[in-house]
Amino acid sequence: MIVREALPEDRPFIEEIAKLTWEGEDYLARVFDEWLKDGGFYVLEMDGKVIGTAKLTLLPGKVGWLEGLRVHPDYRGRGYGWKLHYFMLQLGERLAREGRIDALEFATYFLNRESIAMAERTGFHVKAKFFVFGTKTENFELEEPERVEPTMSDLTLGLIPVGWRFVRRSEEALKWIKLNAELYDFNGFRFLAPKEGETFTPLDVGLATLKAMLPAMAWVAMERERESFDVMLPSGVKPLLPGLKRLGLLLWDETEEPNVLVFRKRLR
């Protein structure tokens, strides 16, 4: 059993894991080529078969972002997820010694008990909380937004969700966002859409502005041939939950608390 860098010939194994994760909706297969090119993409191999994956992505602010931790369903419950987690911690510590990162971060769903347990036992702390809502494109009359170039004034949140990655507001983050996301404007209201994925971030949070933006978000999702999309909102929208439900935004699981947790472990 070894942990090694992912190779092009690992694709069939990765596609199999993706098909068996999140009812076949896992994004892992879609980002396989991009992650190979980016580096920091590792697999756990046993007897010639890839049974797990993990990725460390360098984000602005000297952050090592952990993502893509997966274990094939046939091998879960045997400690392989912990093995990958500890490997990534060691990788992060090495990058910190080299001065390339100052901290490790990752985001997880509030019901992902195993990831939360691993985080808490290895020195991670909750840095921020968000709500992620789901909805279907058919719920809205589509309205085409305008694609615009983001500027610092558009980054209205201190911690900005770009899909399921989160970056702090800075000039470096702005450059990264231009490479990894698209900014759309609809009647003066703006939202971010990652180039990979369908989790959108409104940059102005309020029931009226969200109501105005949702048809434009649905248009972007339909252009990407998706029948549904998600909306990521800061935890401060909790008082708006009843109104958000009336707009057609539904939480994946019944909860009154934020369902996305962003963890951080300082290394330097």
Rank of each mutant, 00 (worst) to 15 (best):
M1N: 04
V3I: 15
R4I: 04
L7I: 08
D10Q: 01
R11G: 03
I14G: 02
K19H: 07
G24D: 10
G24S: 04
E25D: 15
Y27P: 08
L28H: 10
A29W: 13
F32Q: 07
L36S: 00
G39F: 06
G40S: 11
G40T: 14
F41P: 05
Y42H: 14
V43W: 10
D47Y: 10
I51P: 03
G52S: 06
A54E: 14
L56K: 15
T57D: 11
L59V: 04
P60G: 09
E67F: 10
G68R: 12
L69Q: 03
V71K: 08
Y75M: 02
W82M: 11
L95V: 02
A96D: 02
R97C: 04
R100W: 09
I101W: 13
L104D: 05
A107I: 02
A107G: 15
T108H: 13
N112G: 10
N112L: 01
R113L: 15
E114Q: 04
S115G: 12
S115K: 09
I116E: 12
G123Y: 06
H125D: 11
A128C: 03
A128M: 10
F131E: 10
F131N: 03
F131L: 02
F131A: 02
V132M: 06
V132A: 10
G134F: 01
K136E: 06
F140M: 05
R147I: 09
S153M: 14
P161R: 06
W164D: 11
W164I: 03
F166D: 05
V167Q: 03
R169V: 06
R169N: 07
E172H: 02
K175I: 07
N180D: 12
N180I: 03
E182N: 07
D185N: 14
G188D: 08
R190H: 11
A193D: 11
G197C: 12
E198S: 15
E198G: 07
T199V: 08
F200G: 02
P202H: 03
L203S: 02
D204R: 01
A208I: 14
A208D: 10
K211W: 01
K211M: 00
P215E: 00
M217E: 09
M217I: 01
W219H: 03
A221W: 00
R224H: 02
F229T: 00
P234D: 01
P234G: 00
G236S: 15
L240I: 03
L240P: 01
L240K: 01
P242H: 05
L244D: 01
L244M: 03
L249H: 09
W252I: 13
W252D: 12
D253V: 09
D253C: 12
E254D: 13
L261E: 11
R264K: 11
R266Q: 11
L267I: 04
